[in-house]
Amino acid sequence: MIQAEHIYKSFREHLVLEDINVTFTKGKTNLIIGQSGSGKTVLMKCLVGLLPVDEGTISYDGRLISQLTFHEMKMIRQEIGMLFQGGALFDSMTVEENVSFPLTMFSKMSPEEKKERANFCLQRVNLLNTNNLYPSELSGGMKKRVAIARAIAMNPSYLFCDEHNSGLDPQTANVIDNLISEITKEYNITTIVNTHDMNSVMEIGDQIAFLYHGRLWWEGNRDDILHTDNKELNQFVYSTELTRRLKKQ
């Protein structure tokens, strides 16, 4: 479980996050949604410790990250897997090297054990016979799957996904969404997904936090979101012609 309490973050005079209080539950896919510029990415970067917060506390299963030493923070980060928007695979490494990289850095596994673990993770994301390919030789969907395999290589307790479906067609996006949801339940991890894709919201949104102008505006699940009378959230959900027509029907 990850808890954020009274989070404030600003860049110079511009207040980006204002008094955010939110809890992300273990074993569930927790979504942060909102328009571009609403503060989703900044919140996620604060949660993983890439950006320091101005005020407030963030805790990972009771461990306050603001009170941790450099070494303790390093240890917590080894429990985190993150899926970036573009995959963020290392260009100079093959698929197998990318997946086994965290193991090389932080485990005492033998090369054979690392290979076995990498193959297991790649199989889990349905990627076969790609071990020796470089990221430049992969499609967008394959890159995301390799990134998921790398993120779960260390058996993380926390999985973060930052707009993981951007640039993917709806079918591939659906496959990736389901993969994230399955992995979350299978390994009982705390998953936080940052998205503005309504398909993802309806597919995997166990818990949803809607940010509006840097504030936590609404919380609920994928069933609640369809019946809310929150004006700003409805504007966001029904912003396309397709969703507006579906609502009328």
Binding site: V48, F84, A88
Partner: peptide
């Protein structure tokens, strides 16, 4: 290039 493609962030996240 590693910075703008978030590869450095990925390293940081791994600790």
């Amino acid at each position: 290039t590693m910075r703008v493609t978030e590869q450095i962030d990925a390293l940081e996240i791994m600790g």
